[in-house]
């Protein structure tokens, strides 16, 4: 008996883009994703967090087969994604994107939008497809009458429900949710998050849940990975990573979550203002120009993603410092 493979495995995945079009501009290589290795087990929710531009959506597109890695491998259910047929792939992984306005075809009605993946792959008879669409509408909490509506007649929350129904109609195992609630008001966001929780329980789905909002991620994710300039800098059980972050970047992301508690003021956080630029990644640890705990080793040497004593992995030289040993020498930080 062979062990069940993880639904998703990334092995040393890189994605490089050539940028700088035009006659005079110098062509340069932008590394959007750099050496990412991750596993996502069946029925698990992995939260992927990080600031805009750190490579989350690029990673998502490679997992969905919309782009090919420049290097490394994406495996779905133990098989390289490049060797899967389109239908096979569609039955393993489906997306839900941020913007329910631009991701739905405005010229098609809801039934056609949800049924499209079935029609494209010629799955079932016309009658079976109609039944499947009706079932999906119910599953995502929409009324049968919505089948005839067009996206422009629906609210943002209803559109996101349709995007979810379309993602589920092929009964995938993994759903890649890329900022699924970032464009929504909080009262609508909570409905969509509740729906995603319900669907996971009912259908045993796995999610790769991408968000810049850690409060949202901690609602859903069993495991969390934090990304900075294309690299995973910390990864592990959500409780550990969000409860006791070991990487100063994860700690900074957490500190910047503003819970609506008026007894607390604005948290003190002194991250340097050096805005991360994937076209000029700092040497050594890419986070060092902003890191409040930077010391002399950081600009010289890139830290490896190593196991932490508390579980999970983190890429920070501080972790290799002996517990209770002398504090590492501090660099004087530029203001």
């Amino acid at each position: 008996m062979s062990p069940v493979p993880p639904i998703l495995e990334l092995r040393g995945v890189h994605k490089r883009y050539t940028v700088g079009a035009g006659l005079l501009a110098r062509r340069r290589t932008l590394t959007a994703v750099s050496g990412v290795s991750l596993r996502l087990e069946r029925s698990e929710v992995l939260g992927l967090v990080g600031e805009s531009g750190c490579g989350k959506s690029t990673l998502a597109r490679m997992i969905l087969g919309l782009e090919e890695p420049s290097e490394g491998e994406v495996l779905l259910d133990g098989r390289p994604i490049s060797r899967l047929g389109r239908l096979e792939r569609g039955r393993l992984v489906q997306p839900v994107f941020q913007d329910p306005y631009s991701s739905l075809n405005p010229r098609r009605n809801v039934a056609a939008i949800i049924g499209l993946p079935l029609a494209v792959h010629g799955v079932g008879t016309a009658a079976e497809r109609r039944d499947a669409v009706a079932e999906m509408l119910g599953l995502v909490g929409l009324a049968p009458r919505h089948a005839e509506a067009y996206p422009s007649q629906l609210s943002g929350g209803q559109r996101q429900r349709i995007a979810i129904a379309r993602a589920l109609v092929l009964r995938p195992t993994l759903v890649v949710c890329d900022e699924p609630t970032s464009a929504l008001d909080v009262s609508v966001q909570s409905q969509i998050l509740n729906l995603l929780l319900d669907l996971r329980e009912r259908l045993g789905l796995s999610y790769l849940f991408i968000s810049h909002n850690l409060a949202v991620v901690q609602m859903l994710a069993g495991r969390v990975a934090a990304m900075y300039l294309g690299r995973i800098v910390e990864e592990g059980e959500a409780e550990r990573v969000l409860g006791h972050p070991r990487h100063p970047y994860t700690a900074a992301l957490l500190a910047s979550v503003l819970t609506p508690d008026p007894s607390l003021g604005l948290p003190e956080m002194r991250l340097g203002t050096a805005f991360p630029n994937p076209l000029s990644v700092p040497p050594g640890c890419a986070f060092h120009p902003r890191c409040p705990a930077v010391f002399d080793r950081c600009p010289r040497e890139a830290p490896a993603l190593l196991p932490c004593p508390e579980g999970g992995r983190a890429a920070c030289h501080l972790i290799e410092q002996p517990e209770g040993g002398p504090p590492p020498p501090r660099l004087v930080q530029a203001a």
Binding site: S187, N194, M219, P260
Partner: peptide, 25 residues
């Protein structure tokens, strides 16, 4: 009250529990 109940709050909202919602439009 409804808006406050819709917000996930790390450390307070138990992971996996359902958030409050404001039905309708």
């Amino acid at each position: 009250r409804g808006l406050m109940d819709c917000i996930p709050q790390p450390g307070r909202t138990v992971p996996g529990t359902r958030l409050g919602t404001i039905p309708g439009m």
